[in-house]
């Protein structure tokens, strides 16, 4: 059996969960076995219902102890179910939380971890995956040496699976120890609330130091992101300067994105930044410095002042829509 841990929010599956189903299907072709989904949370009924339209078997763990993500409670739940159901592979989204507990699950199952993978295949006995390394400059093919295997799957790579079945939902209980619950979750600071999550965005607009200041984000980046329903990113320099929160940072120490189109506005293009976005399908760079390294990785470049080009771009997009 291949177990898919589906992320959800506000009663709906996240896009990454739909991608995981596609990833699992591509793995199933070689590895065999059934697919089963798992939804973990405080109130998982709605999300489990959505998942049952994609998979025949859905397990649902609904408990107040899971109302917040904690690596150890999730590890306990996923590892226990994987063991009970004799899963050959466990698929987890390579979100921040997924990356946080999937190593623990692997340890607990004494399984190899295929981390942050972008493709998967199997010959029935082993699982082979591709992933990025060396600041995303290298693509490597890695092979797990045993089964079961724990796999975290890079978001925004696999297509979204379509609803196709009418599966069953089975409630599962996971006894948690005090130790599992020892980490206390306190205050949260939300990222830009209304906007699409960066990793899920099909369009990302990133501002660099060339934007000029926090007001540059308000006046240039935000309106363009609104016009395109895009996620907003920023560079390390911008985050270090305190113009934007860390959660928006793209690059080695920030998030990795691979949207359909990536706008780098006033971004110089340091290698650490490129590692977070160089897998984007189309890259657009706008910068007044013609020597900025970002132009070397861009598909389309405009050499000019962001203050002039970005508002014109927003107008052109709106005009093209009408």
């Amino acid at each position: 059996m291949i177990l898919i841990v589906a992320e959800h929010k506000d009663g709906h599956l996240r896009k990454s969960a739909l991608e995981l189903v596609s990833a699992a299907k591509s793995l199933q072709a070689g590895l065999g076995g059934d697919l089963a989904g798992l939804v973990i949370g405080h109130d998982t009924q709605a999300a489990a219902g959505e998942l049952a339209k994609l998979l025949d078997t859905v397990y649902s763990i609904s408990d107040a102890a899971f109302s917040e993500f904690r690596a150890e409670t999730y590890t306990a739940a996923v590892a226990q179910l994987a063991q009970e159901k004799n899963a050959k592979a466990v698929l987890i989204s390579a979100s921040r939380s997924g990356l946080s507990y999937s190593p623990r699950v692997a340890l607990r199952l004494d399984a190899p971890l295929l981390e942050d993978v972008s493709s998967l295949e199997s010959n029935g006995n082993t699982v082979t995956a591709t992933r990025f390394s060396y600041l995303a400059r290298v693509t490597e093919t890695v092979q797990a040496q045993s089964l079961p295997v724990v796999i975290s799957v890079k978001p925004n790579i696999y297509p979204v699976a379509e609803a196709a079945v009418n599966g069953s939902i089975e409630a599962v209980d996971v006894p948690l120890t005090e130790q599992d619950k020892r980490v206390q979750v306190g205050e949260k600071v939300a990222a830009s609330s209304e906007r699409v999550a960066l990793e899920e965005a099909s369009i990302v607009i990133t501002g660099g130091r060339g934007v000029g200041g926090p007001e540059g984000f308000d006046n240039l980046i935000e309106p363009l992101a609104d016009a395109l329903s895009a996620g907003i990113g920023s560079t390390r320099a911008v985050v270090d300067a305190g113009w934007r929160p860390y959660g928006e940072q793209i690059g080695q120490t920030g998030k990795t994105v691979a949207p359909d189109v990536y706008f780098a506005l006033g971004v110089s293009g340091a290698v650490q930044h490129l590692s977070g976005m160089n897998r984007s399908k189309v890259i657009v760079a706008i910068n007044k410095d013609p020597d900025a390294p970002i132009f070397k990785v861009a598909d389309y470049g405009v050499i000019g002042d962001v203050n002039a080009v970005v508002p014109a771009l927003k107008d052109a997009i709106e005009a093209a829509r009408n």
Partner: peptide
């Protein structure tokens, strides 16, 4: 538990098209 079978530097070919003209 993991063996690396292959490593390659695989960068997407970029168009590097500079668009001219006023904003």
């Amino acid at each position: 538990k993991i063996v690396i079978l292959k490593q390659e530097i695989q960068t997407r070919e970029r168009l590097n098209k500079i668009i001219e003209g006023d904003p």
